[in-house]
Simulated scan of single mutants.
Amino acid sequence: MLTEESENLVEFGIGGLCNLSADRGCRDQILESSGISLVTGCLSSRREETVLSAVATLMNLTTAASREHTTSPAVLQCMLRFSLSQSARLRNLACIFLQDCCTPAQVERAERELQGHTQTPLGIPLPEN
C-alpha cells in the first residue's frame, strides 16, 4: 500500500504498518522484507499523519542490526528539518527520534552536512499543517 498513488491508501497503510512494527515478530518481518526503504519513502508525503506514522515506524524498526539503515545521513537530515517544523507533533517526534535512535555524533555530523544547504534532504518537503 505504501507505493499506491492514493494518498489515503498510503496514509492508512503506513498507519497499519506503524502499529504492526511495535511487535517484535512483525518488526523482523518488515526488516527482512526490505521495508525500511518503503517507510522512508513516506517521509516525503505532504500529509502530516503519513509522515508521523513513518517516523514512528522507523523508531520501532531501529535495532542494533538495522540502525545503520534507519538512521542513514539522509534520514537524519530529514529529522533535523522536521525538528524545525511548525507542527508541534512533528517537531517533537523528530526530536525524540534524534535523541532515542541516533548517537550525538551522528546528529552532529548530519547538522554539519545540512548547514549551507538550501534544499531539503532528498527533496523531502515539510508536510502541510
Rank of each mutant, 00 (worst) to 15 (best):
P125F: 02
L61V: 09
A105C: 00
E5T: 14
L84C: 10
L80Y: 05
P127C: 12
F82P: 00
F12D: 07
A105N: 02
P73G: 02
S44P: 06
R81I: 00
A22G: 14
S83I: 05
L84I: 04
C101I: 08
T71N: 07
L43A: 08
L31H: 01
S45K: 01
M1Y: 13
L43P: 00
Q119T: 04
D23Y: 14
N92L: 11
T120H: 08
S45G: 04
I14L: 11
A110E: 00
P104L: 05
R91A: 07
R91H: 10
A65V: 12
S37D: 13
D100S: 10
R89A: 11
T57I: 03
E7T: 13
N8R: 13
G25N: 14
A74M: 10
T71F: 06
L31R: 06
S6F: 06
S87D: 02
E113T: 07
P73K: 07
E113Q: 15
C95K: 10
Q86H: 09
V55H: 00
A65D: 14
G16Y: 10
L90G: 04
T120N: 12
L122F: 09
M79T: 08
A64P: 04
Q29M: 12
R67D: 00
G15Y: 06
R112I: 08
R46L: 15
A105W: 05
H69A: 13
S66Q: 01
L126V: 04
L58M: 04
A65C: 06
C102S: 08
R89K: 11
F82C: 00
T50N: 03
P125N: 13
C26M: 09
G13M: 05
